[in-house]
Each structure stands twice: as structure tokens, then as C-alpha cells.
């Protein structure tokens, strides 16, 4: 049955690969040896009018369903026949935000394990995109001239990479901390400058400086104060002082018992349904 399906698929592939509207499908395989292939779904990268995108207009190819063994260099190599590639970026999911990415540190943000990803391939010329959309032949990720490491070899090289140079780490930490110290110093200087200067409405901000700054205004602290107030009030109240209070307490007790009884009945019914009363 599998064979028949494969044949059918092969025939279909010859005619035209089914692809969702707006996309075109490009088969991709790991190497010659594999028989079945995954499909990249590609289209020109477009965004709604008015929204900004980090990717250049017209020249960017948006690629879906990039297999996990496919790296950025790979994609760049695979699409270079269509036109020279300027950059390739792989992401876990389509990028909708506009904010530019912060450069990440390899020490503090190790690369996650890749799954199926999406890619943004930026060509130097718009013609590259249209050429890519017309691709039909299966792409090969790993070839003899450009082998791609997977499995044991990949894990070993990753392990070797994970053994880091402490000196580089130290240097990175030092530069970061220097920048951080500078930033805080600047902020402090700014705050000092503003001290005693009224803002546009005439308010003057007064702060207590020093090692122990004033208690920060936190939610937890304000809740604590409220709680304390409540306790104070409760302590002043008299319990069971009036006859009606007494009556109500009794009624409340009865209501509690009733509620408990209802709960117990439900429990029993459940246990009965589960035959929990068959002792053996």
C-alpha cells in the first residue's frame, strides 16, 4: 500500500506539486539517498501597508517548513543558483514584530535545539525571488562537496563547541559590566541634575539618597498594610454578644454541616459508581 501511494505521489509530483494559494512548493531532501522529500513552501515576503519590516521589500523570500538539519549556510548555498544571496535568517516562527533584534551572547543565550523553522532569504536583486519561486527540482541539503553533519558527528562537534574559553567569557562580562556601570552612573547623574528642579507643573521630586533608599512602593507591601487594618478591626468586634449573633452562629454551624453532608454524599455516590465499596 505504501508503495502504491509512493507511486501515486511521484506521478503527482511530475505534474505539479500541490501548494497552498500564494505559495509554491520546492521539494527538499537531505541527500541523494533519501527517497521521500519534505517540501519548502515559499513566497515573496510581503507585509501589510504601513507596517515596517526588517526585511527589504521585493527582495526577500519567505520560506516555510525548513527541516531541522538545514542550516543558514545551507539555504544560502541552495538558493544561490537563483541569484546572489545577501543574507539568510532562520527563525522558529514567522516574525511579526518590528523591533530589531538585540545581539545575543553565546555564553548567556545558548542556541536552542532546532526543529522545523521558517527562513527569510534576502537576495541582492528582486529577480532572485522570482527565480526561486520557479524552482522545481529537489534541493539537496548535504552533498559530497558540502557535507552536513548530523547525528553522532554533529553532537560531538556541538559538545566541543560547548566547552568554552573562560577568558572570552571574562572579557564579555567585563565589557557588559562596564557599559552597565556607565549607564547607571549616567542615570544617577541625571537624577541628581533633576533634583530640586520643578517640572512643567511645578512639582519638585524629593528623594532620600543613600545606601538604604526608601521602601519601594510594592503591591505586596500595600496588601500587607490592608491586611493589618482588617485584623485590627476584627479584633475590636464582639463575638456572640447579641442574641441574634448567637442565633446566626448556630445557623452558620448548621449550614456548614449541611454543606459537608452534601459533599460527603457526592463523594459516596462517586465511590459507589467506582465500586469502591466492594471490599474484595
Amino acid at each position: 500500500m505504501v508503495a502504491r501511494r509512493r507511486k501515486r505521489e511521484a506521478k503527482e509530483a511530475e505534474e505539479r506539486l500541490p501548494s497552498p494559494p500564494g505559495y509554491s512548493a520546492i521539494p527538499i531532501k537531505f541527500s541523494e539517498k533519501q527517497q521521500a522529500s519534505h517540501y519548502l513552501y515559499v513566497r515573496e515576503h510581503r507585509v501589510r501597508e504601513g507596517t515596517k519590516s526588517p526585511w527589504p521589500h521585493k527582495r526577500t523570500l519567505f520560506v516555510l517548513n525548513v527541516p531541522p538539519y538545514c542550516t543558514e549556510e545551507c539555504l544560502s548555498r541552495l538558493f544561490s543558483p537563483c541569484g546572489s544571496v545577501q543574507s539568510v535568517e532562520l527563525q522558529e516562527r514567522p516574525d511579526l514584530t518590528e523591533s530589531p533584534k538585540e545581539p545575543t551572547s553565546k555564553f548567556f543565550h545558548p542556541k536552542p535545539v532546532p526543529g522545523f523553522q521558517v527562513a527569510y532569504v534576502v537576495f541582492r536583486k528582486p529577480s532572485g525571488v522570482s527565480a526561486a519561486l520557479a524552482l522545481k527540482d529537489p534541493l539537496l541539503v548535504s552533498t559530497e562537496s558540502h557535507p552536513v553533519k548530523t547525528g553522532v558527528h554533529k553532537w560531538i562537534s556541538e559538545y566541543a563547541d560547548s566547552v568554552l574559553d573562560p577568558e572570552a567569557l571574562r572579557a564579555e562580562v567585563d565589557t557588559f559590566m562596564e557599559a552597565y556601570d556607565k549607564k547607571t552612573a549616567e542615570e544617577e547623574a541625571k537624577a541628581k541634575e533633576e533634583e530640586g528642579v520643578p517640572d512643567e507643573e511645578g512639582w519638585v521630586k524629593v528623594t532620600r539618597r543613600g545606601r538604604r533608599s526608601a521602601l519601594p512602593w510594592t503591591e505586596a507591601a500595600s496588601l500587607r498594610v490592608l491586611e493589618r487594618e482588617k485584623q485590627k478591626r476584627a479584633r475590636k468586634e464582639l463575638l456572640n454578644f447579641y442574641a441574634w449573633q448567637h442565633r446566626e452562629t448556630k445557623m452558620e454551624h448548621l449550614a456548614q454541616l449541611r454543606k459537608k453532608f452534601e459533599e460527603d454524599k457526592q463523594r459516596i455516590e462517586l465511590m459507589r459508581a467506582q465500586r469502591k465499596f466492594r471490599p474484595y
Binding site: 500541490p18 537531505f30 516555510l64 522545523f116
Partner: peptide, 25 residues
Amino acid sequence: TKGRMVVAQGGELVMVPNVEAILED
């Protein structure tokens, strides 16, 4: 789309897992 492919099924385009490619993966 992860690991899936588009096939025509009953005149409609739907996505199903690309099992054979996955097994090779």
C-alpha cells in the same frame, strides 16, 4: 506547516504529516 505537506483531498488542499519523509528524518 512543521513536517507536513499539502495534498489535494476531495478537491480541497489540506495538510497532512509527511510521514515517509519524517521516517527518513
